[in-house]
């Protein structure tokens, strides 16, 4: 589902000047993958076939950097940081150019790259970058750069049942078979299931003859644990909400269509 929740990403790069050693297309690709902070809920999709973007569906940025020799360096300096100015280009150097009414709707800090320290390119004196970047809204199905999450996974809640009492050294052994915090040992030296949620569901116990008959490993089939790792544009909880909304809207469009479908078929039926 999280390949259908939209986000904003740089889609077009107009290269006015690129004399650095990184090729135009590689540079454009790198720029496309930079996550943007802009809230996709405030933007619309660019209509198919539209050449010009509007203030509602497009964000424009520019990146203009020139590398030069550092005038104020000590004689024996050898590190590139000391020798040159602007020798590494970071995402924080991307400047936002509001179009239309955007400056009053969005704030500068809310649209730019999520992280300012993403290295885009390295340059040497005389190298120059002068680019215009156009960001649009899209979904992960089209290109992974539009995906709002780094990962989104789910698993079932593990359930561990002890069928008999496990004491002493066996209890300690049992504890080591599971993830930390899963099995506890009470004051009588007896093992009990403390919190099955943290278990990684490894089947380590079954390697030991002495305790393998004491455990039943199952999962609760209607208890899902979702793990959503946002890239930064939207908080994870908002991504979840958006994804459920998308599923709901899918049902709605299909239902609406079926309603028409049904009507038209009943009409043909009547005509017969």
């Amino acid at each position: 589902m999280l390949s259908e929740v939209p986000s904003m990403a740089i889609e077009k790069v107009m290269i006015k000047n690129n004399t650095s050693i990184i090729q135009d297309e590689i540079l454009a690709h790198r720029l496309g993958l930079i996550p943007l902070k802009a809230d996709p809920r405030l933007f619309e999709y660019r209509p198919e076939g539209a050449v010009e973007g509007t203030e509602f569906d497009t964000l424009e940025f520019s990146l203009k950097v020139r590398c030069s020799h550092n005038k104020v360096q000590t004689k024996d300096s050898f590190r590139p940081e000391d020798l040159y100015e602007n020798h590494s280009v970071y995402s924080s150097q991307i400047k936002w150019n509001p179009i239309g009414n955007q400056a009053s709707v969005h704030k500068d800090i809310d649209v730019g790259p999520v992280h300012g320290d993403i290295l885009i390119s390295k340059m040497r004196p005389g190298h120059e970058l002068d680019l215009n970047l156009v960001a649009v809204k899209g979904i992960g199905k089209d290109h992974a750069k539009f995906s709002p999450v780094a990962t989104a996974t789910y698993r079932l809640l593990p359930e561990i049942t002890l069928t008999r009492e496990v004491n002493g050294s066996d209890a300690a052994l049992l504890q080591t078979c599971f993830s930390p915090g899963v099995i506890g040992i009470d004051s009588n030296g007896c093992a009990y299931v403390k919190d099955a949620r943290y278990d990684s569901c490894s089947r380590n116990v079954f390697r030991y003859e002495s305790i393998k008959d004491a455990v039943i490993l199952t999962r609760i089939r209607d208890h899902f644990i979702f793990n959503v790792e946002s890239v930064g544009a939207l908080p994870s909880q908002a991504i979840f909400v958006e994804s459920v909304k998308i599923l709901r809207d899918k049902c709605k469009t299909l239902l609406d269509e079926l309603q028409q479908f049904y009507h038209s078929s009943s009409i043909t039926h009547v005509n017969k």
């Binding site: 459920v244 909304k245 599923l247 709901r248 049902c251 709605k252 299909l254 239902l255 079926l258 049904y262």
Partner: peptide, 11 residues
């Protein structure tokens, strides 16, 4: 139709 409707409600 019922399925779609219920899925919508579920969402």
């Amino acid at each position: 139709k019922r399925g779609l409707h219920d899925l919508q409600k579920l969402c």
